[in-house]
Design a protein around this nucleic acid. Sequence first.
DNA 1: CGGCACTTTGAGAGTGGTCAAACGTCGTGG
DNA 2: CCACGACGTTTGACCACTCTCAAAGTGCCG
Lengths: 236, 236
Amino acid sequence: MANSRRLEASLSRRADLSATERTVLRELPVTRTTYSDGACIVSEGPTQNGSCLLVEGMAMRAHRVGPSDRVISALHVPGDFVDLHAFLLDHLDHDILAVGPCTIEFISSEHLTQITRDHPNLTRLLWLDTLIDAKIHRVWVATRSALRGPQRVGHLLCELHARLDAVGLVSSNGFAMPIDQRGLAKVLGYSVVHVNHAIRDLRADGLLEWDRGHVRLPDPTGLARHVRFDPAYLEL
Amino acid sequence: MANSRRLEASLSRRADLSATERTVLRELPVTRTTYSDGACIVSEGPTQNGSCLLVEGMAMRAHRVGPSDRVISALHVPGDFVDLHAFLLDHLDHDILAVGPCTIEFISSEHLTQITRDHPNLTRLLWLDTLIDAKIHRVWVATRSALRGPQRVGHLLCELHARLDAVGLVSSNGFAMPIDQRGLAKVLGYSVVHVNHAIRDLRADGLLEWDRGHVRLPDPTGLARHVRFDPAYLEL
DNA sequence: CGGCACTTTGAGAGTGGTCAAACGTCGTGG
DNA sequence: CCACGACGTTTGACCACTCTCAAAGTGCCG
């Protein structure tokens, strides 16, 4: 059991916190764990006693669809309260998997219950966090109707760029990309081959550089315009 | 200003409410309004002072993508607290449109604030409602990766069947369907022609009857198996 | 050097889009 | 009562997007 400043940093991004509230968050006991690429952080089924906060690395939500097939419905970056659901729902309908090595902090349901009972303002901020997740989901749904091929790939890269930038993980428009092309295909509902062609096209247009785990957007505003990306929905 | 039992009915579906809580919900003042097909219930932009509950009919979330193009990211049925977002977010990134004639009840932000300050249990239930919306969104994203053609159409029809059944709007496996084929195409990210072919196939397999505004699933479990529909995610 | 994982390319096939036209139903007006 | 137009549905033809299978290229690591 250690304490963490991650949650405080995450919530204070969207509203001013009182001194009391900051103290509550800072003294929240967390259990820190690390996972390697592909590891299952939380698995489908009855929820465990605790919610997880992503501190380092990336994670994804994987729905089982066949005996061995999985489809991805969401991606998470550091600072995301990945599994606040566990606190209110008694059953998870998908797995949460590590994408690349990542660090997680677990917070017990008891402590969360305590917060929602005693601190309406913090409750509001936690709730807000889940509402923003839902906004992102809706944009993903909308994007799949509106965009295809290179534009769909570009839109996701713009989103990742913006979300990672908000937590200081972007430098000179580049960021670490733990997802390979096969993974990206699963996230977008495409085949590897198709994603590869989309990347080739974006590269040819000078809108993307991607080299072994590192992505750079040479012209972020140009790409954003090209794929109609408007970061407003991320509430950063 | 009138009172309503809609919200009480909706929230009590998922947990037991205390007498006090029931009273609070029952005495909540609401403003009731009706809309005709296609009308804009809430429009993109700064949020108004109040959240809306869908009482009768259906509604959809429409994201503007071009000057005249819209894509749909969600559908709502009676009992859904369509716009709880307005309470926590200060900006809506899409329109909410009436699908067929529908009835809405508006609840002011002041009253919601009061509830979240004084009734942690009700707050938890409202929050839970938005979490279930998010679950549905994730299943929509996953479905678009996993299913195509007739199965994708069938999956949505199964979902509507289940959600409408939960609020007593299904009889002998049939329900009123205010969405036409063009609308369904927009919801699924397909063209009208393609949706029409999918419907033709489902009909030929004896899995769907659809006649001018009325849909019936002659074999709901057969269709569910065929499209891998598992209603668990709806938390009904 | 050899294996392994990821990326890249090509060819053939299926899925799904666009355009265009015909059909059916229904409400309106003559 | 019928003609008409509006609207949704259905069909066909043709083309673009995307998939699968297959194979070759590239970099990393034992």
